Simulated assay, not measured.
Amino acid sequence: MENDSLLNELSRELENSRIVRLLCKLGFINERPEFNMDSRWSETGDRYLLKLFRDYVFHQVDERGRPVLDLAHVLSCLNKLDAGTSERIVLTSRDEQSCLIVSYRDLKECIESSLRELR
C-alpha cells in the first residue's frame, strides 16, 4: 500500500510539472512587448492562435459578462494541448468578428514553432 501511495503521489507531481512547463511556454510566447513593432512577430499566424487560445482557456465570461473561474476547464484544455489531441475547438476573436476552428494538435505545433523562432 505504501508503494501504491508513493506511485500515486509521483504521478500527481509529474502531471503538475507538465502543466507548469506548458504554461511557461505560453508565457514566453504571448504578447512579447519587445516585438510590438516587428511584423514578423505581430499578432498574426501562430502567435495569434495562441493568444485566442489563452483567451479561450483563461478569459471566458458568463452570459452576464462576469469572469468564469473554472479550474476544471483550464486543466482539461491544458492536458489536451499537452497531449496534442485531434479534438477541435472554436477560437473567437476579441471583437467576436472572427471564429477559427483548430485542433489541440495544431495549437501544440504553433507553440513549438513559436519557441523555435524565439530561440
Rank of each mutant, 00 (worst) to 15 (best):
E2H: 14
D4W: 10
S5V: 15
L6I: 13
L7C: 05
N8G: 05
E9F: 10
L10V: 14
S11F: 07
E13F: 11
E15D: 12
V20L: 15
V20C: 08
R21S: 15
R21C: 14
L23T: 09
L23P: 02
C24Y: 11
C24L: 15
C24F: 11
L26T: 04
I29R: 00
N30P: 05
E31R: 13
P33T: 06
P33D: 02
E34P: 04
F35R: 09
N36Q: 15
N36M: 12
M37D: 13
D38N: 15
D38M: 06
W41M: 06
E43V: 03
T44L: 11
T44M: 10
R47G: 00
L49F: 04
L52V: 03
R54V: 02
V57F: 01
F58Q: 03
F58R: 03
H59V: 02
Q60N: 09
Q60M: 10
Q60T: 08
V61N: 08
D62K: 08
R64H: 13
P67T: 12
D70Q: 01
D70S: 05
L71Y: 11
A72N: 14
V74A: 03
V74N: 02
C77M: 14
C77H: 04
N79H: 09
N79C: 06
N79Y: 00
K80Y: 09
K80H: 12
L81G: 01
L81Y: 04
D82N: 15
D82H: 08
G84W: 02
T85R: 02
R88P: 00
R88Y: 05
I89C: 03
L91G: 01
L91W: 01
S93L: 10
R94F: 06
R94V: 10
R94L: 12
E96T: 07
Q97K: 11
Q97E: 10
C99G: 03
I101D: 00
V102D: 01
V102M: 00
Y104S: 01
D106G: 01
E109I: 01
I111Y: 00
E112A: 09
S113M: 02
S113W: 00
S114W: 04
L115Q: 07
E117K: 11
L118V: 06
L118A: 05
R119P: 03
